[in-house]
Design a binder for these strands. Structure first.
Lengths: 213, 213
DNA sequence: CCAGAATATGAGTAATTGCTCACAATAACT
DNA sequence: AGTTATTGTGAGCAATTACTCATATTCTGG
């Protein structure tokens, strides 16, 4: 009775305020344990305990550990996308050279929303079964950036926008992620500006930005 | 008796040919199970069974699952570095423009050594405890590339070689990884050349390669 | 061939896990 | 108040796990 998970979605809908609070407590407890103790230690029993909720209640709303973690991922992705979308809106009001600066800076900002959680999700959460959601953010960002390039297509030298979006988004995401996670000193101070400047310069050079819209 | 792992290193040295074969069988079985069934299913009992070795023998040479996986990672890293070092030797005989092409192509080649294993290691193996070895390859590659840049410093516009190496290696690794793992169609045919060409172009443009050594 | 060292075996134990279910408490509605 | 739906509880079972140890087998050097 161990090997088979049923599904990732919640079991029952929370209707009353009380149950909605329970669900929220469970999701928050899951995030807390992920950060403090790691993915392995995040058992359903442990999560229920941390949430101050009985194990039975947990299974009333979530079919298992995967679903809890999936909920945490979803929430975190949502937070990230908010930062990205806001930066995108700002970038669209600027010429593309400045816009790219904007987006790179936003990528760093997004990683600073909750770095510890972001790290656990990236390094310990297996991209397996219903937990593939970790990659979902990447796809959304890709689409957004691809549309951005489309809007500025005549200010660019590159022509294959699919390939270009893939290269830009993958690079920016990897660079900001690695910097925030593995080089914390870059976060504050002048080193950060340099990282943003250098990354933007690389992206702009690659895209072949020529003065234009 | 669950939560405490002792260490990651082997317990006993394999002296005779027989025991060396046992150790090899165990490591290979671990890799096979990782690929076929995933990290979760790779229990010590399961690995011993797959290797055709008793569980007792397994614990004679490895203190636990972590050590087995660490051995697999080490072997895989070694294979990767072999590809990278060979490409590096070739790159050093060429002007830097061509050399970068070389290195990017090698990065793709490295990911094709054993893509399935590479994927499991990247996506399912928690970067935890003694399993951080997954990141070791990145550091070695970084050092190598940093030295390469040093050799060509007067053919480049960039001055902060540490930052430059970080940006280049992180980008190239992320791009080739993502392409090989998530866009398999890029592997063969003309799309691959384009990826190499575009990536190299980006890197060269960033480094500010001007005709020189 | 033999003695001791090296290697191999696998049933068995303790811990932990995911998860159920019979029941209790609370809320909502009439 | 009484009835029903919603929500909450936690002891406890079954499965799985990591790991040990007493024993058996195989090798090596003499």
């Amino acid at each position: 009775m161990l090997g088979q998970k049923r599904s990732t979605r919640a079991r029952k809908k929370a209707a009353q305020a009380r149950s909605r609070a329970t669900v929220a407590a469970l999701v928050e407890a899951t995030a807390r344990i992920l950060v403090r103790e790691g993915f392995d230690r995040a058992s359903t029993n442990r999560i229920a305990e941390e949430a101050g909720v009985s194990i039975g209640s947990l299974y009333q709303y979530f079919p298992g550990k995967e679903a809890l973690v999936a909920a945490v991922i979803e929430r975190h992705n949502h937070d990230l996308m908010q930062v990205v979308r806001q930066a995108m809106a700002e970038a669209e009001r600027e010429p593309i050279g400045v816009g790219i600066d904007c987006l790179v800076a936003a990528a760093i900002e997004a990683h600073r929303v909750h770095p510890a959680l972001h790290r656990v999700l990236a390094e310990q959460t297996p991209r397996t079964g219903e937990l593939e959601g970790v990659e979902l953010f990447h796809r959304e960002a890709l689409n957004l950036f691809r549309a951005y390039l489309e809007d500025h297509r005549d200010a660019l030298v590159v022509t294959d926008l699919d390939l270009a979006a893939f290269i830009c988004v993958t690079s920016i995401e990897a660079l900001t992620h690695s910097a925030v996670i593995h080089r914390p000193k870059i976060l504050s101070g002048e080193a950060r500006q340099r990282l943003v400047a250098e990354t933007s310069r690389m992206i702009a050079a690659y895209l072949g930005v020529r003065g234009g819209s």
